[in-house]
């Protein structure tokens, strides 16, 4: 599904190398987690994969089902099936949540040569999906993320994921700013989307999210590289001992 080889990335405006050769392969249907200390490049990886400006790829490649992601515009990557759940979902005053979602769904369908979803059908689908995420009609009507609590914003991200049905989902610190109940709700939303044709890359600081979204593989990222990979027990090790041991091991 997602295949990253030797990915090197620097900041566009600064002579600062962030990713120094990332290798990562997430097969179809798998859930991989990336953990790592602050500044290790986790969020940069998610942004580079989703096509955000401000980064320069200086080496390596990233493909999604053999499609070269790095050559595509952000919207083309989305249409190809990539989805990034933002750590800090953006507030967009003046754009209704529902309008935004319908525009996005139909833009992707159009890009894939499918018919647009009718307003009635869209409404039916979104109402059902919003309900399971405890998103009420008012939240759907309000401008995108404006005045939403931290938990509401993250639930809204998962709703977008559910509506867009991507094949590769990247969750960037989706647990940040969530209380226990909200984390449970969001995780249930994610788990409901788990499917043999859909893969997840879960970026997190904390093991607790991985109690809810159980990963197949855990990677540790440090200083712009994946330095260690293992099973779910690796996350527990980090939780107990911090990163120091692993990093020392590498040194």
């Amino acid at each position: 599904m997602l295949n990253i080889k030797g990915l090197k990335v620097k900041l566009e405006d600064e002579d600062k190398q962030i990713l120094k050769g990332v290798d990562l392969e997430v097969p179809a249907g798998a859930v991989h987690a990336i953990m790592g200390p602050n500044g290790s490049g986790k969020s940069t990886l998610s942004y580079v994969l989703s096509g955000r400006d401000g980064y320069e790829v200086t080496g390596g490649e990233a493909t999604l089902d053999d499609e070269n992601l790095l050559e595509l515009e952000a919207e083309e990557r989305a249409a190809a099936g990539l989805f990034l759940a933002f750590q800090y979902p953006v507030e967009i005053p003046g754009v209704g949540n529902m309008t935004f979602l319908r525009t996005a769904v139909n833009a992707q369908r159009k890009a894939r040569g499918q018919d647009e979803m009718s307003a009635t059908e869209f409404l039916k689908v979104i109402r059902a999906k919003a309900k399971t995420l405890k998103i009420d009609a008012d939240m759907l009507k309000r401008p995108v993320n404006v005045g939403f609590s931290g938990g509401e914003k993250k639930r809204n991200e998962i709703l977008q994921m559910a509506m867009l049905e991507p094949k590769m989902c990247i969750l960037d610190e989706t647990d940040s700013g969530l209380d226990v109940d909200a984390m449970k709700l969001v995780s249930e939303g994610v788990n409901a989307l788990r499917d043999k044709g859909r893969s997840f890359l879960v970026i997190t600081h904390y093991q607790r999210l991985l109690d809810h979204i159980k990963p197949d593989v855990v990677h540790i990222m440090a200083n712009g590289r994946i330095v260690k990979s293992g099973g779910p027990e690796l996350a527990l090790e980090v939780e107990h001992n911090g990163y120091a041991d692993i990093l020392a091991e590498m040194a």
């Binding site: 989703s50 096509g51 955000r52 400006d53 515009e73 952000a74 919207e75 990557r77 989305a78 249409a79 989805f83 990034l84 933002f86 979902p89 953006v90 967009i92 935004f100 979602l101 525009t103 996005a104 769904v105 833009a107 992707q108 890009a111 995108v144 977008q160 867009l164």
Partner: peptide
């Protein structure tokens, strides 16, 4: 970027 990342050209 947020809009584009959702597939809106």
């Amino acid at each position: 970027f947020y809009l584009r990342s959702r597939g809106v050209p």
